[in-house]
Amino acid sequence: MSTSIDAYARVDSGAELGGGVVVGAFAIVEGGVVIGEGSKIHPHAVIRRGTKMGKGCEVHSGSVLGGEPQDTKFKGEESFLEIGDNTVVREHATLHRASGEGCVTRVGSCCMLMAGTHVGHNGKVGDRVVMANLATLGGFVEVGENAFIGGMAGAHQFVRIGAYVMAGGGSVILEDIPPYMMVTGGYRPPVCGLNRIGLMRAGFSAEARQAIHKAYRILYREAESTQEAVALMKERLGGSAEVQKLVAFLEAGTGRGFASCRRRDCGETRS
C-alpha cells in the first residue's frame, strides 16, 4: 500500500510512514515520528517529534500529538509518546510526550479519545479506554483497560483509575478508583456501586461478577481498612483472577487514598 500525502501537508523527510498512511492538507508531521500502516492524519493535525503510532490509527483535525509536557521541570530532554493500534483521536485533543530523559507517555490500542480530551505527560492509558469530550488526565495518571471517563471529567496528577471503571461526567477525581467500580460525577465523586453493565458487556462470567461483588462488599461494607479488606479478599476469594487484580491494585496504593462509598456507613476515603 502506498502512502498519500496532500500537497499542502508538511511531512519531514525524517518521519517514517507505513504503507497506506494518509496525511491531509495542512497537517504537520515532524522528523522522528513513526506512523503505522493504514493510519489517517486529518487536515490541520500536528504530530510532533518523539511520537510513535501503531497501525490503523486516526487523528482528527486540530489535534496535537507529542507536544512538550506542561511540566516546569522539563528542560527539553528527549522523551516520547507511544500509541497502540486502531486508536482514534478526535478533534483538538492533546497528548503530551513525557517529562524526563527517555521517559514515555503511553496510550493503548483501540482507544477512543473524543474531542478536546487531554492526556498529560508520563500518563499510562490502557487498551480500549474511552475518554468522552473534554476529559482531562493530569501528569502521571494511570487508566486501566476498558475504563470509561465521562465528559469534562478531570483526574489529578498521579491518580490511578482501575480497569473497567465508569467515571461519570464532570467528575473531579482526586483519589484512586479501584477496578470495576462506578463513580458519580462532581467533586471527589464517591463510589456508587459496581460497573455491572460494563462487566457484562465485556463478557465477564456470572461467577466472576459474583466474586467481584463479594470483594466490593468486603471493601466498602465489611472491612474497617483497606489492609483488612485485602486480607479478607485473599482468604475468601483468592481463587478468583478478577479479585486478584483488585487486590494488586489496592496493595499498590500511591498514597492518594481510594474513593469512598456513597453510603454513610462506608466511612471516609480509605488509605
Rank of each mutant, 00 (worst) to 15 (best):
S4Q: 12
A7M: 08
A9W: 08
A9V: 04
G14Q: 14
G18A: 06
V23C: 09
V23W: 07
F26W: 13
V29C: 02
G31Q: 06
G31V: 00
G32M: 01
E37M: 04
G38D: 03
A45C: 04
A45K: 02
V46L: 05
G50I: 00
G54E: 03
H60S: 08
G62F: 05
L65V: 00
P69S: 05
Q70C: 05
T72S: 14
K75M: 05
F80A: 00
G84F: 09
N86I: 01
E91R: 08
T94F: 03
L95P: 14
H96F: 02
S99Q: 12
E101T: 04
V104D: 08
V107F: 04
G108N: 09
C111I: 06
K124N: 03
V125I: 15
L134V: 11
T136Q: 01
T136C: 08
V141H: 15
V143E: 07
F148D: 12
R160I: 07
R160E: 02
I161E: 07
G162N: 05
A163Q: 15
V165F: 13
A167I: 13
G170C: 04
V172T: 07
D176C: 12
I177R: 14
V183W: 10
C192R: 14
G193W: 01
G193V: 01
I197M: 14
L199Q: 12
M200P: 02
M200R: 15
G203M: 06
F204S: 03
S205D: 00
A206W: 13
A208W: 01
A208T: 14
I212H: 13
I218D: 12
S225G: 14
E228D: 12
K234Q: 14
E235M: 10
L237W: 12
K245P: 00
V247M: 09
E251G: 11
E251R: 11
F258S: 07
S260T: 00
T269K: 12
